[in-house]
Nucleic acid binder design. Sequence first.
DNA 1: ATTATTTCGGATAAATTTATCCTATTTAGA
DNA 2: TCTAAATAGGATAAATTTATCCGAAATAAT
Lengths: 144, 144
Amino acid sequence: MFSKACEYGIKASIYIALNSYDGNRVSLKEIAKEIDSPEAFTAKILQALVRDKIINSVKGAYGGFEIPKEAIASIKLSQIVNSIDGDSIYHGCGLGLNVCDENHPCPVHDQFKTIRNELKIMLESTNLEQMALDIKSGASFLKI
Amino acid sequence: MFSKACEYGIKASIYIALNSYDGNRVSLKEIAKEIDSPEAFTAKILQALVRDKIINSVKGAYGGFEIPKEAIASIKLSQIVNSIDGDSIYHGCGLGLNVCDENHPCPVHDQFKTIRNELKIMLESTNLEQMALDIKSGASFLKI
DNA sequence: ATTATTTCGGATAAATTTATCCTATTTAGA
DNA sequence: TCTAAATAGGATAAATTTATCCGAAATAAT
Ligand code: FES
Ligand code: FES
């Protein structure tokens, strides 16, 4: 469904949000450990998210990653997925036709469109705050 | 969503079904042309589907691929997807945790489970006959 | 029998995704 | 100012997926 990069990106963002909530900046090392991801690869993904202004980074000693408290609730899962995997998940044809076109549908178009749209709604209606709070309360987990 | 191999496999199966419906066996060459897929790669995928007994093959001159008429309506999209991409699409965690476990859910588990289940239902309730007839009637297309 | 056609299957190559390594740059604090 | 800690970014490697090539085996028709 999502690429590995996207999975790591989502989990990392949640972990950063969780800590930014408490005013703590977190390092790449800590993130990779807590979401159980390869450090250097995670670094690349975070770099991209920083470029896309989804998270902030601070270089140097005592640096790390953070998300402005007031932004946490406004960052949707869809933004992270879009940033990393692009938007083919919303518009692409399920059978790989060049374009998904209502007037030239593939054999699974009607059924697929429904699922794809629900996925879109799901990604657009889930934000970092909700997910971070679930981790905090122990209702959900980032690894194992 | 699906791998390229799976996309080709689905389209090829539909094209074979469509022709088997009319009593025509089709060659790899014809299939690859009609679904716009790389021939040798498609051959590998069809070989696998034959091994899984989803389609039949006949070697030699005038050989090709076919599906017994009476089987067409009973072959579900889910069988093809399972054969090629496995079943992680039904059971795997959306964020890549080792297992998707109700008692140890990832941050998107609740939302993801719903989508995943709808996808499963969709794949299980769509069969080759329906899709082949849509192609035949011009209601859907296999390429471009 | 011979030939042409076609799938099968192994080896290999190309492309993409995932992952690692190393150096440069930035920054806080001693 | 120097040092340690941290991200940035380029180069490279490993793994996986996608794709190609070629010879073997099977089969129908001549
Ligand atoms: S054309 Fe294939 S999903 Fe719309
Ligand atoms: S645990 Fe992640 S989808 Fe169920």
